[in-house]
């Protein structure tokens, strides 16, 4: 046999050429990696353009945007962590009740006369513990997160209602504290909560793509078996995602209580569907492994804007649901082209 066997040791080393590829150019890389987020931005801008054409007077006036910016931060603090949980291949429908519980803890502490910063700490701890509990229930109990978290949402809301008997807590003293200045005043005519929401989004973007936690979220959502074979603690990553949702919900609860000076037992209830929609309008696919934090934030902006926008455009409030649904479906169709699922 004169045929050379591959096991013979004489093998030439691979030639070391320098590699270059069009996608290595920074701006093309940026476009490629952020195409889902950019798509969401395009949806938002198209919607804005539509509204402006329909009613140029209202949509060139700042007051309309100011009212959107008041409700937007709460939505962002709920949507961004939800991108993490969808990426890891789970879903959390218990965040509205977690938000209610965490805000309840905040309200009780402030009502008892403590500094609101202690209230915020209490809310964060409550959110994290509830997130951990829900996560353990799903992961250790090996339950479907869709059903289990839906159940937890009812259970937690039920607990609130049982204990408060539906009574709200008003916190008029809140406006005197330095915490209120820091988290709920205005800066340059914009609610200061917007700056916190932007900071949170940027921090989460780094967490999502440049931190071990976010990277493990991607891998576990992509292929949990591979992740486990490579020594990643799959359960811990999943529970971590639930804890992150709990923390986001706690901040959202505190912020919304600060805006209203009142905690209601229904706090968080209305956010379930709009926030879920925001994640997917933002360009994160349903199957896990990939997603976009920036897109999620833009999705939250889009969804928050629809309601204000439709009324501002001169349509009656009866149109809100119809256009809400239309935007969701159109953006899902739009995201089809950049959501390639590799197997």
């Amino acid at each position: 046999m004169d045929q050379r066997s591959p096991t013979q040791s004489s093998t030439s080393a691979a030639s070391a050429e320098t590699w270059s590829h069009p996608s290595d150019q920074p701006w093309r890389r940026f476009l490629l990696t952020n195409r889902a987020a950019l798509g969401s931005l395009a949806v938002f801008l198209a919607m804005l353009l539509m509204f402006t054409i329909a009613n140029p007077v209202v949509f060139t006036n700042w007051t309309l945007y100011a009212s959107v910016l008041t409700t937007l931060p709460v939505a962002i603090f709920l949507t961004v962590p939800l991108v993490f949980i969808v990426t890891v291949g789970e879903i959390d429908l218990s965040f509205p009740a977690t938000m209610g519980c965490a805000a309840w803890a905040f309200a009780l502490v402030v009502q008892a006369g403590y500094d609101p910063i202690i209230g915020i700490a209490a809310a964060l701890v409550t959110g994290a513990i509830l997130g951990w509990f829900v996560g353990c229930l799903v992961v250790k109990g090996n339950l479907s997160s869709l059903i289990a978290t839906l159940g937890m949402n009812f259970v937690l809301r039920g607990i609130i209602l049982i204990f408060t008997e539906g009574k709200s807590i008003s916190l008029p003293s809140l406006s005197d504290s330095w915490v209120f200045q820091l988290f709920s005043s205005e800066l340059y005519g914009v609610p200061v909560q917007i700056y916190w929401a932007i900071a949170f989004t940027i921090f989460s973007m780094f967490l999502y793509t440049r931190h071990r936690f976010g990277v493990h979220i991607h891998i576990v959502g992509d292929n949990p078996d591979s992740a486990a074979q490579m020594g990643i603690n799959v359960n811990r990553v999943r529970i971590g995602a639930f804890i992150f949702v709990g923390i986001g919900a706690a901040i959202a609860g505190v912020f919304s209580t600060m805006i209203n000076f009142t905690w209601w037992p229904t706090s968080g209830d209305g956010y379930l569907l709009p926030v879920l929609a925001s994640v997917f309008v933002g360009g994160t696919p349903t199957w896990g492994g990939i997603g976009t934090v920036l897109g999620g934030a833009i999705g939250a902006l889009t969804v928050s804007f629809i309601q204000t926008g439709i009324v501002g455009a001169g349509l009656s409030g009866f149109y809100v649901q119809f256009f809400n649904g239309l935007i969701i479906i159109l953006s899902l169709l739009g995201h089809r082209w950049n959501q390639i699922r590799y197997r």
Binding site: R210, H211, R212, M230, G231, I232, G289, I290, Y342, R343
Partner: peptide, 23 residues
């Protein structure tokens, strides 16, 4: 993990980063 990049797969479970976990 086929939806991730080559570099993420090569460093899967062995990510190179600082003490705070940033890569």
């Amino acid at each position: 993990a086929v939806q991730q990049s080559i570099v993420r797969n090569i460093f899967m479970g062995n990510e190179q980063g600082n003490r705070l976990g940033f890569l």
